[in-house]
Nucleic acid binder design. Structure first.
Lengths: 224, 224
DNA sequence: TGTACATCAGTGAACGCGCGTTCACTGATGTAC
DNA sequence: TGTACATCAGTGAACGCGCGTTCACTGATGTAC
């Protein structure tokens, strides 16, 4: 999928090396998933990709370049899917409560599917902050949608409230998904329950819950 | 301060080696702070402590034991201070809004002072989860206090609401402190503003904000 | 008080292992004439 | 079509560095008589 040129990779000039590059990248991501950041060594990557160290260094100037390239790939993919998911829905037709519920649903889904990989990638390269940047992007793209309905909010500072409210929702989602069934009380919520609680929380804080309907909203699953 | 025996350390038997151990531990924590997890090598630690590798291995069976010992120390200290801070206040005299505000204040302060170190320690030892465990301890100890006022809550499931509400507050605190002045809008809040917004959020969700007074609460600063 | 001995504490050179990286070499693909 | 050549792609042994760890040794402290 990536025709994106990257400074991190020496571009392949034959289909053969193109495939090798693909195998290397996939192997690295699989190792990251299976063994964590420390499991991604050059030797392990080339072994899993049925390649060789020489081939690796024909593509990448060094391990750092691989990391940079992975960051780009994962980041671009997450961003593309997020934007697609956001644009799928007709926000301008919605009132504040529906927008709130939609935003919460998107955050839950993206958290479930994309965030772990970014976090691990960050941990691999020391100064990585892609996870934090991605979170901020999420907030920013939802901010605009919510603020279009600022007149429906009672909070005196809608900009502040939207940002803090979305951060709050993320905190709930993290807690609700990190500890699914930990023997401590009723924390394993269904997606629907989680959506409902988060939406109540958000709208209650923004101050615009009065007109909240009860029909659940359907989602396209764009997260593979 | 620690008379706590630990399986991780070979107990010193003379004051001299006792001091050496202390220097080693402090050096390790300083390096963690200054250079991050990767900066904490055995050689770097003993150099900074004006000690030697031999002395190190006289105390610890290996680097893992140092990590384990650090975890214990940091964890115990954080826990002690947290418990002291919680017990300082007369919760049983407070109504729900005051308890909520107090809880929020405690979370902000502990986050400011103690959480970073735990996070870095986790990152150092691969499977570390002290940070998450600590967060859960915080929630649990505040849960009880808030649930003593469950009759003042309107939320139909107080146990669930308290837990999610506290997680939400933590999300806000994380966001509010991680990106203090990032050129994007009014996110650099004073402690007082942050307390107020978080308290509003929490009480609004629990459903018990009606009786909320306006006198700010004073804190003992037990966080050094 | 002095001497002998045992244990505790400290030192730093040296070792081995895993990792990232290099390099001399072989094979595949494409182009010129 | 065949041959010569250049470039791309791939291989894996070998190297060097940093790290955790070991070990033979010296010095300090405490105890017995």
């Amino acid at each position: 999928m990536p025709d994106t040129p990257s400074t991190a990779v020496n571009p392949p000039k034959q289909p053969r090396s193109r495939k090798t590059l693909e195998r290397l990248v996939n192997a690295a991501l699989e190792l990251l998933e299976a063994k964590g950041p420390d499991g991604v060594t050059v030797h392990a990557v080339v072994a899993r990709a049925n390649s060789s160290v020489g081939s690796f260094y024909a593509r990448f100037g060094g391990k750092d370049d691989l990391l940079e390239y992975l960051q780009e790939r994962v980041w671009d993919e997450a961003l593309t899917r997020w934007n697609a998911a956001v644009e799928t829905r007709a926000w301008s037709d919605m009132a504040l409560p529906a927008i709130g519920e939609g935003a919460v649903g998107l955050l839950i889904d993206v958290r479930r599917s994309r965030v772990g990989r970014l976090q691990k990638l960050d941990r691999m390269s020391g100064g990585g902050n892609a996870y934090e940047r991605f979170r901020r992007h999420l907030v920013k793209s939802l901010e605009g949608l919510l603020l279009d309905r600022r007149t429906e909010m009672e909070h005196p500072r809608p900009e502040l409230a939207v940002r803090l409210g979305l951060s709050a929702v993320m905190g709930v989602i993290d807690a609700g998904l990190d500890a699914p069934s930990d023997g401590e009380g009723p924390l394993d919520l269904s997606r629907e329950q989680l959506v409902e609680e988060c939406t109540d929380l958000l709208l209650g804080y923004l101050g615009g819950a009065e007109g909240r309907g009860k029909e659940p909203v359907e989602f396209f699953d764009v997260w593979g």
